[in-house]
Nucleic acid binder design. Structure first.
Lengths: 221, 221
DNA sequence: CACGTAATGTACGAACTGGTACGTTAGTAA
DNA sequence: TTACTAACGTACCAGTTCGTACATTACGTG
């Protein structure tokens, strides 16, 4: 019978500022996403870390700044993935559908991020407003959409008069709602929007919706 | 110089259970919507009431049950308004557009309700799940959409194969996102989705989107 | 190998927060 | 009028929660 082994640290340096900070951010992201800003506990975040609460204040200053740091890292990751998206070599119709699908997949793959955004909206985006990093965040996705829209209109396949930001909003709202509101929606209508087999169904619905809007005969507007 | 007058009660009975409960629910709705569940303070709710904290526990039992009661009343009000909607005398196309507009207007008019739903989703709809009132809530809007869809297909104007719940989701997602995410969206893209002059713009966009989807030529699906 | 500093751990406190024990009063029915 | 109960108020507590003072140690540098 061996005693419970003491919690082993990952090999390497015992003191590693970068790793400690990253670990705190990882745990804090989970904790904030699951419990909300006020629901999350600094002690709980610390306990789930290899280090102590002292380090949270040492590196981040406080709960508020920790949450801001969590948001900043989450958005940075989004932007990174957005820049990887390569759809501009496609025909405008295919490009838009592909972009919508990438947005769709991204929302489904990052429910914690969706929750953080919901939480930040409950707080009137006060952390974002106070963060130079976040308020000056440029979003490459908008430029991509803008160029596709331009190409599509030049070719005559897009009839709708909509700009890039609004189209991005249309796509995001569908993807965001499906993930963010799945609990109340499921409870009210008995339908799990994120259930296994439904993914392709909603993915196609989104693409069809966006394409239908962009290509609708002008009469119906 | 007269002293500050003691807080005068509204005329009538001094002790009125129904009025006290309603007042607590009013304040609690505001407080929960603005601060979130964990951010809201029972003491603060009580302080903003004509009565004391003791009454909250007397009538509702605790913070958790108070939040559930707030949710129940908010959803009851929604259902009441849904039942007033009278669109089935219209042509299918006009009926759907009108229904979408009513949903749109309702979301814009009740931002507190939107926030409560966001908050409840952060908590995985646990209060709804525990409330018999809320989990057995039937939603007349779905039946209305179902009948309009049927009529529209019978007339041949609707080509899309979509059921009532999914169409409701499509409409709700647009309306919900616009209100719920206006803060982060505004911060990121510098566009206020709920600004004064933009209402008609987004209202039309929603209607066009839904109609375009429902009437799109089958080839594009 | 000494030494300075960044990095870390321990212990603790002040304020807050949900909840309750206990006492009081307005309204009502007989 | 009297007596009873629903409705209400005050004071308080126990546990929690963010934050910090102080001590300590690993690690790079010369």
């Amino acid at each position: 019978m061996s005693a419970v082994p003491p919690p082993t640290r990952p090999a390497g340096r015992m003191r590693d500022a970068a790793r400690t900070q990253a670990e705190i951010l990882d745990v804090a992201t989970q904790e904030f996403a699951r419990q909300g800003y006020d629901g999350a506990r600094v002690d709980e975040i610390a306990a789930r870390t290899r280090t102590t609460k002292r380090m949270i204040y040492y590196y981040f200053g406080g709960k508020e700044q920790l949450f801001t740091a969590v948001l900043e890292r989450a958005y940075a990751e989004i932007r990174r993935q957005e820049q990887e998206a390569d759809v501009e070599h496609l025909e405008p119709l295919a490009a838009i559908r592909r972009l919508a699908e990438l947005t769709f997949d991204h929302h489904e793959a990052h429910p914690d991020f969706i929750r953080l955004v919901s939480i930040e909206n409950i707080h009137d985006a006060s952390h974002m407003a106070a963060s130079p990093t976040l308020s000056k965040l440029n979003t490459p996705a908008i430029d991509v959409i803008g160029r596709i829209l331009e190409a599509g209109r030049a070719e005559g396949v897009f009839t709708a008069e909509i700009d890039a930001v609004d189209l991005h909003m249309m796509i995001s709202s569908f993807c965001f709602f499906r993930v963010a509101n799945r609990h109340t929606f499921g409870s009210l209508f008995g339908r799990d929007l994120v259930a296994g087999g439904t993914r392709e169904h909603y993915r196609r619905m989104l693409g069809d919706m966006v394409i239908a809007y962009l290509t609708a005969p002008p009469a119906s507007h």
